[in-house]
């Protein structure tokens, strides 16, 4: 019972994990992208569309990431090059993503993913690891897409904390002028990482439409993008911590469904992820410290020759 619940928690947490990682890497470059919901929807419709058209699972994944990247580049152009207000640009991106996905999505209403792709993302036991008692089955008897999320989370952690690029990225997000003075190409760093962030959000959406659901629904993300933005704070901008943050909320997402027969209003239980998000946000703003603070340059446009 518990094991099967936790097994589903990983699945339900995966879209959140991708999106949270995406937003972490975006915010680390100093950009608060409130368009996560829109990017996820773009990824969802991109992944589904390409999967549906080609029946190729790999192309479907790339499709989701690619469309997410395109959306993020629009945001990057507005906020990096044109120095637009990040809050409003992000909101615009969400409206855009929602619009596009439901426009294009009308073609797919009621359609299912091709069997080839559903088969490709069947759970798959990793030898040895899946034999670990209890957690082995939960973590290592999942689908390939989920394994991809593990790999990405860990690589992002290593990238951010142990490589030169990561170090430079942190500097760009904290103090772009300082980074600039050491010869770091601030604009390039911002563009690249906003784009990577968009790709990851796209993957989050694509996971929903290709694997988790796997048929087309309008507004398939149902607010997960916004929760991901809150999870970034919960995870204090740390890709490793994003793992458990995402799974906790993955659990909250399905708890209402699981407790259906407990004679308690499902609609009230469905509030849980949102209520807990608020609690988490308030909690993390009460105990602030230098090590889990947002990047100092967050949402401040940078312009070298400003006078």
């Amino acid at each position: 019972m518990i094991e099967s619940f936790l097994y589903s928690v990983i699945i339900s947490g995966t879209p959140l994990l991708f999106a949270t990682l995406g937003e972490i890497i975006t915010e680390k470059s100093g950009h608060l992208n409130l368009g996560v919901e829109g990017l996820m929807l773009l990824g969802a419709v991109g992944g589904f569309g390409i999967g549906f058209a080609t029946s190729n699972p790999i192309l479907a994944i790339f499709g989701g990431a690619f469309v997410g990247t395109l959306g993020a580049l629009v945001y990057a152009f507005l906020t990096v090059s044109l120095r637009a207000n990040q809050v409003v640009s992000g909101l615009a991106l969400t409206i855009f993503g929602t619009g596009i996905s439901s426009y294009v999505g009308t073609i797919f209403v009621g359609k299912k993913m091709p069997e080839v792709i559903i088969d490709f993302f069947k759970p798959f036991e990793i030898p040895l690891l899946s034999k670990i008692p209890f957690i082995g089955n939960i973590l290592f008897n999942q689908d390939l897409f989920i394994y991809l999320s593990y790999i990405i989370a860990i690589s992002l952690g290593v990238y951010l904390y142990n490589t030169r690029f990561g170090l430079n990225l942190i500097a760009v997000g904290e103090n772009p002028s300082a980074a600039d003075s050491t010869g770091i190409n601030v604009t390039l760093y911002k563009y690249v990482h906003i784009a990577i962030g968009g790709a990851l959000c796209g993957l989050g959406g694509a996971y929903l439409s290709i694997v988790e659901v796997p048929q087309w629904q309008d507004n398939i993300t149902a607010g997960r993008g916004w929760i991901a933005i809150a999870l970034v704070i919960f995870a204090s901008w740390n890709p490793y911590k994003a793992l458990y943050a995402a799974y906790i909320f993955g659990g909250l997402n399905i708890i209402g469904f699981r407790m259906q027969n407990l004679n308690f209003s499902q609609n009230l239980l469905d509030m849980l992820p949102y209520v807990v998000t608020i609690m988490v946000l308030v909690g993390s703003s009460i105990k602030k410290s230098k090590n889990n603070a947002p990047p100092k340059g967050l949402s401040i446009p940078y312009f070298r020759e400003e006078r």
């Binding site: 103090n175 002028s177 300082a178 980074a179 090590n291 603070a293 100092k296």
Partner: peptide, 10 residues
């Protein structure tokens, strides 16, 4: 022009 959260070395 220093990044506060990083060490001298970084």
């Amino acid at each position: 022009k220093l990044v506060d959260v990083q060490t001298a070395k970084e």
